[in-house]
Each structure stands twice: as structure tokens, then as C-alpha cells.
Design a binder for these strands. Structure first.
Length: 164
DNA sequence: CGCATTTGACCGGCGC
DNA sequence: GCGCCGGTCAAATGCG
């Protein structure tokens, strides 16, 4: 497994991603992201996660990961039958790292910080600084293993990868 | 001077 | 209906 830039690189060309600004939320093939899930959950794939191109990653190793292609309320049609499928692709990395600013090559703009009840550690909210790119990122330190950092990516980049 | 970060306010959902 | 809780906004601040 690589970073989400890998996700972009591998899946974007295959999924007919509409141009930026298009309402892509329902346009892309969800099955692609089911494939993505399988791809992500493969141990051998993300054990090879080693973007050596980024110095911050040098001693990191991804120890766990989860994802959900469609998170939200697909079965819940409260009232009228508006099935609002909020498809938010979410992938979570758990990375062994002393630093939580994992530079994956994208430009992130921090827009929030919260203390969560479950964890003594704050949670940081980032957004992709590319205009019209809806990708959000959430970084928080593992509550019981402070040497781990949980990074959650949400959304799909609607632009080509960062200028690396 | 233009940008990102910071940090408390604000907001909406949910449970009691 | 109220308060908690997680998520976001935005003004001020800091930094290049």
C-alpha cells in the first residue's frame, strides 16, 4: 500500500473522474472503491508502504488500516424515500511515527483542532488546499500508543497529484 | 505583504 | 429542550 497519491494514480485513470468542479459524488464507480478496499486490506500491499521519496516517512511504517467506501445512510430513508447516499471514501492509516505532520506531498491547510473525549490527544483537521478539492484529512495520535499516528483521509482528490 | 496556523466560537446531530 | 460532542468557521496572529 502506498499513499493516497497512489490511490489516485492507480484508480483515477480507471474511474472516469470528472473534471474539477463536477458533481463527482455520485459519478464515480463505487465498485472501484470496493476494489480499493480489497486493495487496501491486503497486508502485503500496505506493508510495502514506504514512500521513500518523502523524508518524513523514512522511519515510518503503517501498522494498520481501514477503509469504508460508502459511509453514511444508505438504508436509512427517514420519511420520504430520499436515499441520500453520502459516499465519502475514507481510508485510515495507522502509522508509527513521532511526528504527526506526515508530508504526503499534498498541500494541506489545517482548519481545526479538537480534543476528543476518548483520547487525551487532540485531533487535527486538514483540508486539501487545492481549490475545489474536497479531500479532508484528520490526524490524531493513538490514545494508547502515542508513538502511532492515525491519519484518516476522506474524499478523493479531483486534481492530479501534488507536484512532487 | 500574502499566506498558513491558531484557537475559541459556532453549529448541527443525537441522546437523555 | 438541553447539553454534550464532534466538526467547521473565521478573526487574529504568526511567519516567509
Amino acid at each position: 500500500m502506498r499513499t493516497h497519491s497512489m490511490i489516485m494514480a492507480d484508480n483515477y485513470p480507471n474511474t472516469n473522474i470528472p473534471p474539477p468542479g463536477a458533481t463527482y459524488e455520485m459519478n464515480f464507480e463505487v465498485s472501484q472503491f470496493f476494489e480499493l478496499n480489497d486493495w487496501i486490506e491486503d497486508d502485503t500491499l500496505f506493508s510495502s508502504f514506504n514512500p521513500s521519496g518523502y523524508p518524513n516517512y523514512t522511519s515510518n511504517e503503517v501498522v494498520g488500516m481501514g477503509s469504508s467506501s460508502h459511509e453514511g445512510t444508505i438504508n436509512r430513508e427517514s420519511g420520504n424515500g430520499k436515499e441520500k447516499k453520502e459516499i465519502k471514501d475514507k481510508v485510515a492509516f495507522k502509522t508509527k511515527s513521532e511526528i504527526e505532520i506526515l508530508d504526503d506531498g499534498f498541500k494541506w491547510r489545517k482548519y481545526g483542532k479538537k480534543m476528543v473525549k476518548n483520547s487525551p490527544n487532540p485531533r487535527n483537521y486538514y483540508k486539501c488546499s487545492v481549490e475545489r478539492c474536497p479531500v479532508k484529512k484528520r490526524v490524531e495520535r493513538d490514545k494508547e500508543d502515542p508513538c502511532y499516528v492515525v491519519t484518516t483521509y476522506e474524499g478523493i482528490h479531483n486534481h492530479q497529484g501534488p507536484t512532487v
